[in-house]
């Protein structure tokens, strides 16, 4: 079942002679239950792709549809609501609010989105699975990089999103933690029936992906052969 559809996306920055064509005719589909990896070097356009997929930026041309609804036609308020209700973001840094404990990170979300979040019991199960159930009264500053990233993943899943968008979730993690995060994202995609899209330049995540896309100079190609390499 298609959850996110990007059709003929182009994105330009600047005008005239300084105009840069960042994304070129991108066509991309994400389905529930699948982990999609978008791999590319720095400056290839993968972050721009992620922000357009998440409704944070509008494409210069093309269409983004979330569960069949055009993002272009939404007001800013509707886009805020869409991101809150349907998308979970896992970012590279500044993921967690430093002055809130792990437990309070979820409370903050609950204060804004009062319904259709994970139940307390489901959250406990999730935290246990992520091995962070004992960290609920700790502040982000008291956690390791891996623990912070796992809390960020839990927070992204707390609102029961249809899509999880992750930006370099394994940056600054050691190999052991990369494997751990890869497994978590893969399992969550399948068990929570969520479409997970990860943009990264970390090839160690390839083995966990259902689909691997390569992005280079703004052009995206499906390259599932990378999984066999």
């Amino acid at each position: 079942m298609t959850t996110l559809q990007l059709s003929n996306i182009n994105k330009y920055f600047g005008t005239g002679s300084s105009r840069v064509h960042v994304l070129r005719d991108i066509n991309f589909t994400a389905k529930k239950g699948e982990l999609n990896l978008v791999i590319g070097p720095s400056g290839s356009g993968k972050s721009t792709f992620l922000t357009i997929a998440g409704g944070l930026q509008t494409p210069s041309t093309g269409e983004v549809e979330l569960e069949g609804q055009s993002v272009k036609s939404m007001s800013n308020k509707q886009r805020d609501a869409m991101r809150l209700n349907k998308i979970g973001f896992v970012l590279q840094a500044y993921n967690l609010i430093p002055y809130l404990t792990v437990k309070e990170q979820f409370q903050l979300v609950k204060k804004v989105k009062k319904e259709h979040n994970l139940t307390n019991l489901s959250l406990e199960v999730l935290l246990k699975r992520l091995d962070i159930e004992d960290l609920q009264n700790k502040y982000p500053g008291e956690l390791s990089g891996g623990q912070n990233q796992r809390v960020a993943i839990a927070r992204a899943l707390y609102t029961r999103p249809d899509i999880v968008l992750a930006d370099e979730p394994t940056a600054a993690l050691d190999s052991e933690r990369v494997v751990e995060v890869g497994k978590i994202l893969q399992t969550l995609a399948r068990e929570q029936n969520t479409a997970v899209i990860v943009v990264t330049h970390d090839l160690r995540l390839v083995e966990f992906a259902d689909n691997v896309y390569q992005i280079m100079d703004g052009q995206m190609t499906l390259n599932n052969n990378m999984k066999l390499a």
């Binding site: 805020d80 609501a81 991101r83 809150l84 209700n85 973001f89 500044y94 609010i97 903050l108 804004v112």
Partner: peptide, 16 residues
Amino acid sequence: IQNYAVLRAQGIPAKT
């Protein structure tokens, strides 16, 4: 500001 940007990305309304 970076924390606020993350919260805005996550759909937390500016009024909050």
